[in-house]
């Protein structure tokens, strides 16, 4: 398993600028963002569509690079890492939960959960133990050998959560994880994430406008037009 980051802030952004080139003009997706996201908390980034929430999560998740500024994740300046080093960094430290579940369709639920452990080079026995334990934790042990197309939306998102958490990452990033689910299923998914976050003591960072999800947040980061408006702490650290 991956060693925990002892610092109180798991993510630090300093004067981060991200621009995209659309035609002949540069569009600012993030403009001079400076923030620190505390470790082991349930943090949420809120804002209107196009405000820059997903771009911010992409930079934190090391799947995109900043145009300017410093991005430090788990005490590592990720702006200096090569593409391969970034891939290794993601495999060790970051778990992703996507809006559209993004399970590998040709792998069973068990194999999807096992995948990140293979990237970490774990033994077969160890992988089996961890993957099955995680599937049990999300209530899907009985469906371990089903393929994604044999699962409901809620079940797919549970598998995605298990896949994100199985390697015990320092950081879990979830972009609109309840957007494709009905309210009841969405509520159960939020409860599940809250529970495993507490059990595993992991940092969760969401991008969402889901009111239910916002109500569970420890920290809320509001952004508008690529700029950070406020950081509101809902619960004490």
């Amino acid at each position: 398993m991956v060693p925990r980051v002892s610092s109180s802030s798991v993510v630090r952004l300093s004067r981060v600028l991200k621009t995209y080139r659309v035609g002949s003009t540069d569009v600012k997706a993030l403009d001079d963002i400076t923030l620190a996201i505390p470790a082991n908390r349930f943090s949420i980034v809120i804002g209107a569509s196009g405000s820059g929430k997903t771009t911010l999560l992409n930079l934190i998740g090391c799947i995109d690079t900043a145009t300017d500024g410093a991005v430090e994740v788990c005490e590592e300046d990720v702006t200096r890492l090569s593409d391969d080093r970034l891939a290794d960094f993601r495999s060790r430290h970051i778990g992703f939960i996507f809006q559209n579940f993004s399970l590998v369709p040709v792998l069973t639920a068990y194999e999807n959960v096992e995948y990140p452990l293979i990237l970490l080079g774990m033994t077969v026995a160890s992988r089996r133990q961890h993957a099955m334990a995680m599937l049990e934790a999300v209530g899907l042990a009985e469906h371990a050998h089903r393929f994604p197309n044999e699962l409901s939306g809620g079940q797919k998102q549970r598998v995605a959560i298990a896949r994100a958490l199985v390697k015990r990452p320092t950081l879990v990033l979830a972009d609109e994880p309840t957007a494709n689910l009905d309210s009841v299923t969405g509520a159960s998914i939020i409860a599940l994430m809250r529970r495993v976050q507490a059990e595993l003591n992991t940092t969760f960072i969401f991008a969402s406008h889901d009111a239910q999800l916002i109500s569970h947040a420890d920290d809320i980061f509001a952004i508008r037009d690529g700029a950070l408006l406020e950081h509101r702490m809902e619960t004490e650290q």
Binding site: D83, R92, F96, P105, L119
Partner: peptide, 15 residues
């Protein structure tokens, strides 16, 4: 393509 993005995000290298 989406599957490629997912596995890359999980930590699979370009190679």
């Amino acid at each position: 393509t989406n599957e490629i993005g997912t596995t890359r995000a999980l930590g699979v290298r370009r190679q």
